[in-house]
């Protein structure tokens, strides 16, 4: 039995040797991009050298950004899209809400680690924010109408979910396919993976959450103002991110791509505003003067 144990031991050392290889690579990567996460990576890499490398196996592999390609039906494959921490998500949301000229969202914030956490939960938040604030605004508009009957309008959730999730997934899919096709035709240095495009689109929706909450207030000028602000911010994130991918292309294609991205964004924002938020009626000030009749929520 001892003889059977020996090859086992030898194999362990072999693995440790290959792990050191991996760690060496990890350290070079973390030296190359010395921004936010690199401290952690370097620490993990250093630990890998000094201590028993076997104990740091998983963490170094995860932190160094070297993802072994797990097949897509496994849990680990999806785990790598949730490899973010609170401060990453915070930075990415802030980066998408406050775009800065010359800062490419994918290069500055994602850095080869696109996550699905942000896009998914931003979309879910936006769905419920639209449904709930649309319902509240509808209630406020009809406040005081004698024949108005308050209803929760639960089907708005379904419609909003369909609209938001199809925008956040189908548009990136189409854009990814298009960029792949164009990238084959012309020599292009910049290319994005599908997950990166999904991630940019998801985070670019973050600005709409506060905008949608503002839409509760029944002032049409305020709503349009917030629509325009949100459109400018989220549109500029998208345009600045995808500009390098089509910059070297034919001018017509370039303009068409940018126009399509912006138009779809405008369509989503204006469509949501028009569908979920009814206009304040002109006789609102009159009904506001009789609040005692108006606050009854469920009509009897």
């Amino acid at each position: 039995m001892a003889s059977a144990n020996d090859p086992f031991q030898f194999k362990e050392f072999e693995e440790a040797g290959s792990l050191l290889e991996a760690n060496r690579d990890a350290v070079t990567i973390s030296i190359q991009d010395e921004d936010v996460k690199s401290d952690k990576q370097r620490k993990a890499g250093a630990n890998g050298y000094e201590e028993d490398p076997l104990t740091d196996d998983d963490s170094t592999q995860l932190l160094s950004g070297q993802k072994e390609s797990a097949p897509f039906w496994t849990f680990e494959y999806y785990q790598k899209f949730f490899d973010v921490e609170t401060h990453h998500v915070k930075e990415r949301i802030i980066g998408s809400v406050l775009p800065w000229p010359g800062k490419n969202f994918i290069h500055v914030y994602l850095r080869r680690n696109p996550d699905l956490y942000g896009p998914f939960w931003i979309c879910t938040t936006l769905v419920f924010a639209i449904a709930i604030s649309g319902n509240i605004s509808n209630f406020l508009v009809h406040l005081g109408k004698p024949n108005y009957k308050y209803t929760p309008e639960f089907q708005k959730v379904t419609i909003a979910a369909t609209a938001i999730f199809s925008y956040a997934w189908l548009v990136p899919l189409a854009l990814w396919g298009f960029l792949l096709w164009r990238g084959n035709k012309i020599m292009n240095l910049v290319s994005y993976s599908f997950m990166e495009i999904v991630c940019v689109y998801g985070y670019s929706l973050a600005i709409y959450v506060p905008a949608v909450v503002i839409w509760i207030l029944p002032f049409e000028w305020l709503r349009w103002f917030s629509v325009v602000v949100a459109l400018c911010l989220s549109g500029s994130v998208l345009v600045m991110t995808f500009w390098p991918t089509v910059r070297d292309d034919h001018p017509k294609v370039m303009v068409a791509t940018m126009a399509a991205i912006v138009t779809l964004n405008v369509l989503l924002a204006v469509g949501c505003k028009a569908y979920f938020f009814s206009k304040p009626e002109p006789d609102l000030p009159v009904t506001k003067s009789t609040p005692t009749a108006g606050i009854k929520i469920p009509s009897t």
């Binding site: 009957k149 308050y150 209803t151 929760p152 309008e153 639960f154 089907q155 469920p298 009509s299």
Partner: peptide, 13 residues
């Protein structure tokens, strides 16, 4: 048994 269960503007089923 919420408001307007029979029309499509109702609450959650």
């Amino acid at each position: 048994g919420g408001a307007a269960d029979n029309d499509d503007q109702g609450g959650p089923q």
